[in-house]
């Protein structure tokens, strides 16, 4: 049980990921698929942030050692944590995963935009955003001769 409690964020990641994939695969609607994809991608964001989080850690903005702010931040740390790792002063969360996931979010947004744009064009070309109907229309297309240039 304690395992689940201490890892609840990872469990949330797994649930989000599976939910995203489920929506992605179970839905024939292209828009819903994009929603599933977005949820799936977002779960990675949570995953990376979880990796970076240090208990009692603060944002990676340098604090003058010995200042009152630093003392206050240090006082918030769990004594057990301090004892275990022997930290002294301010603890920062790892900023790198944040940066990484910022990039990944940008990539995800771009993908989402392209995907939705394609969905719009699909609707214009096929008159539907349902994968099944598009499949049927595509198969008909396969038996037609190609267009002449």
């Amino acid at each position: 049980m304690s395992f689940f409690l201490s890892h609840f964020n990872y469990i949330a990641v797994a649930i989000l990921m599976m939910a995203g994939l489920f929506v992605l695969f179970s839905s024939g609607n292209l828009i819903k698929r994009m929603i599933g994809l977005a949820i799936f991608q977002t779960s990675t964001g949570l995953f990376y942030i979880s990796l970076a989080k240090v208990f009692g850690g603060t944002a990676a903005i340098a604090v003058e050692p010995g200042s009152s702010e630093a003392r206050e931040l240090a006082s918030r740390l769990d004594p057990a944590y301090v004892a275990q790792y022997g930290v002294d002063g301010v603890v920062y969360s790892n900023p790198l995963p944040h940066v990484l996931i910022l990039t990944a979010i940008v990539v995800g947004v771009a993908t989402l935009a392209v995907g939705l744009a394609i969905a719009v064009r699909v609707r214009e070309a096929f008159g539907s955003v349902e994968a099944d109907e598009i499949d049927v229309l595509s198969r008909v297309e396969a038996t037609q001769p190609g267009p002449q240039a």
Binding site: F40, I118, V122, F126
Partner: peptide, 18 residues
């Protein structure tokens, strides 16, 4: 030239993103 390019691109996008 071939409107099947659209669903193909969409599939590619989904698989590629996964």
């Amino acid at each position: 030239r071939d409107r099947r390019a659209l669903p193909a691109a969409f599939n590619y996008l989904i698989m590629g993103t996964i």
